[in-house]
């Protein structure tokens, strides 16, 4: 358990330094005052939690401060962490294969805007599931972006993963169909479908996603069992808009937040969860295969507020 938290904290290490460097003075033993409240406000806003959550946290800390002028920084951090935990309650996604009719594979579709990290996440997830003793087939359904198929193929080769791919320009839905068939005949547990990046504002491209689903459902009416939005953790409020539209048009079942090994705090996940209540399954904390970590509210909140076990 500690090891996991450490990885998490290492990944979010910059987060800790970013908030903690600003708030070390506040979140320490010293009582807080007006100027440290100001610094706190800045630290919270720059985490991309969104205006709503930031104000909620600030309000609770200020209320506590009004009641008790000797409120210490540590206690303020605890209040902030409590609010964040409350907002995130129920947000931990747990991937459980469960039983499927006729032993059909479980399909996980990776969806998102361009450059959010779908291909890399698909490869990492396949690797992770195999480490957990599951069998996986990758479906290279980004047949639009130049060399996207080659990118996933390279990953598959590197990590020795099974992949079904066609060529750029091929029908993405047909690739998904074939991958499902292959996975089924080989008795695989999962099919991970890597789709092309598309902005949520392009309705024709959203229609193509719907087609992939329709075709998959010819194999299994309940596929895809999971449709995850892959969100770049360094984006701001627009990721909420992205999630909303994809959810409305396609029906999402969860989130993966990537690129959290930088200094961004991925606070937008809080905003997305607040609005849509979609569980967060994994966080991307680095470029290596093993850097995809299950989302844990406790770890996230601790890392963000620089709290120790």
């Amino acid at each position: 358990m500690f090891g996991l938290f450490k990885k998490f904290k290492d990944g979010l290490a910059k987060t800790v330094t970013a908030i903690a460097s600003k708030t070390a003075a506040i979140f320490g033993q010293k009582p807080i005052d007006a100027s440290s409240l100001d610094t706190l406000e800045e630290a919270l806003y720059t985490a991309d939690f969104g205006v709503e959550t930031t104000e909620e946290i600030l309000e609770e800390i200020k209320t506590a401060y009004r009641k008790d002028k000797t409120l210490r920084g540590q206690e303020a951090a605890a209040i902030g962490a409590a609010v964040l935990k409350r907002v995130l309650a129920g947000s931990e996604g747990v991937l459980d294969r469960g039983a499927t009719p006729a032993g059909n594979p479980v399909v996980i579709a990776m969806i998102g805007v361009n450059g959010s990290g779908k291909t890399t996440t698909s490869a990492k997830l396949a690797w992770k599931l195999r480490e957990d003793g599951k069998t996986v087939t990758l479906a290279a359904c980004d047949t639009f972006r130049a060399a996207a198929v080659e990118q996933l193929k390279t990953w598959a080769q590197r990590l020795d993963l099974e992949i079904v791919a066609s060529h750029t320009g091929a029908d993405a839905a047909a690739v998904a169909f074939d991958a499902w068939q292959a996975a089924k005949s080989r008795g695989r547990d999962y099919v991970i479908v890597d789709t092309a990046g598309r902005l949520h504002t392009k309705s024709n491209l959203l229609e193509e996603l719907a087609k992939i689903r329709r075709v998959l459902q010819k194999n299994d009416p309940s596929a895809p069992q999971h449709s995850w939005l892959v969100v770049d953790g360094s984006l701001g409020s627009n990721s909420i808009e992205q999630a909303k539209v994809f959810h409305e048009k396609f029906g999402l079942t969860g989130l993966v937040v990537t690129k959290l090994d930088g200094t961004s705090r991925g606070g937008a996940l809080v905003g997305i969860y607040r609005q849509l209540k979609l569980p967060i399954y994994f966080l991307g904390l680095g470029e290596q295969a093993e850097d995809l970590q299950p989302f844990s509210i406790d770890n996230y909140v601790k890392a963000v507020f620089g709290l120790e076990d």
Binding site: V113, L235, G236, N238, G267, A268
Partner: peptide, 12 residues
């Protein structure tokens, strides 16, 4: 830079 970058844009 991605036009949708958040607060992180400054550090980057």
């Amino acid at each position: 830079a991605d036009g949708a970058l958040g607060q992180e844009a400054v550090n980057v």
